[in-house]
Design a protein around this nucleic acid. Structure first.
Lengths: 108, 108
DNA sequence: TTGACATATCGATATTCGTTGATATGTTAC
DNA sequence: GTAACATATCAACGAATATCGATATGTCAA
């Protein structure tokens, strides 16, 4: 209908999930392997309900997955999700320079 | 001072810059090569002041750079910034599985 | 089955972020 | 120099998001 480009909302949601400090740090920590919530709590110094809120955002975006083991819930990264994000940032690269196509003069 | 992990605020800022729909689409468009603001305006169907606001965010985060040519300002991606982001998402990967290290029982 | 613990959810509030319209700045053509 | 154009900035408002404290849910051990 409109002139506007279509957006991959799932991918955008993943970027939104990672682009917040607490969640950014969670992702970094999970890069070393899965952690239970209580471990993350300690390592981040974050209140329980706050961390739970952020883990939900990451999970909803498909960036992390969880598994319960008894009382504990362990979170880990979803490699495919991170691959997709890297692919997006990668498409976005060289060959992109248009070295000969710089238009002098007319534009709009 | 605290227990909290230190964060690369520059890198976080880059993720924040990309994690918004308008800016996400700008990055996608610039992947094909530089564009002047008026071209982006058309392609996105975005108001001038709005686009200018978002381009500033991207520029402050180091994700894009601009050059003026007469009346027009051309924006393009900064490959190194995208590389850094991909590196962050890449560190975050296999080997991360800890296949033998799943602790049954004790956690916290 | 009760109490302690780990985690999730919820409502209220606080904070951050994006949008809009108006105006300012800089550039070119007449 | 003045008008027209491209872009940037700003203040006011609204919308989206995060935080906090309280409470609910689920699991284990005694």
């Amino acid at each position: 209908m409109t002139n506007e480009t279509v957006v991959d909302t799932t991918l955008l949601q993943r970027f939104q999930a990672v682009a917040e400090e607490t969640r950014f740090r969670v992702v970094r920590l999970l890069a070393d392997g899965e952690r239970c919530v209580c471990e993350l709590q300690e390592e981040l110094g974050a209140a329980q309900s706050r961390l739970s809120f952020h883990l939900k955002k990451l999970k909803d975006a498909g960036v992390v997955s969880d598994r319960r083991d008894g009382r504990w819930v362990y979170y880990s990264l979803v490699p495919e999700a991170l691959d997709e994000m890297r692919a997006y940032l990668g498409e976005v690269r060289p060959g992109s320079e248009w070295p000969g196509t710089v238009r002098q003069g007319e534009c709009c």
